[in-house]
Amino acid sequence: MFSGKVFKYPDNVDTDVIIPARYLNSASAAELALHCMEDIDKDFVSKVQPGDIIVGGWNFGCGSSREHAPMAIQACKVSCVIAASFARIFYRNSINIGMPILECPEAAQKIRSGDTVTVDVDSGVIRDETTGETFQATAFPPFIKKIIEKGGLLPYLKAEQDASEEK
């Protein structure tokens, strides 16, 4: 269960604005976080608080495969990203690093910037505490849930590998 204030963005937010390539000479999440969303919202980094939520429109995270984009968002301590739809590489990168991400066109349309929103990742229920509206996001298949529960794809793989070596 997460709760936080919403930062809302339009359709087609690309990974070049989430983390501009001029900062990709670093692989450090903490360093990347200093420039998160810089080219679309230069105040984001100074305003975001741990637990806050990003809400985007259609095709959020389109463009480059840079995992630096969800890494930067995660390192800003954003609890969850909600969008009408996600670009596929951004989607799998977020799951693979264990960052909750929910697809819900209705929530993406109705939730406003600054609203307080509560998210139950397990059930996919999103509640806008400011307006009282509730939305149902697409739930994850069991395999994806397992990856998120383990904190990402590599911890999941390691657990699998260790388990098979013990047998």
Binding site: S65, R66, E67, I89, R92, N96, G152, L154, Q161
Partner: peptide, 14 residues
């Protein structure tokens, strides 16, 4: 197809 760095790591491992 394009993937991220964690997928790349997973691919290199498995």
């Amino acid at each position: 197809t394009g993937i991220g760095s964690t997928d790349m790591a997973a691919g290199m491992v498995s």
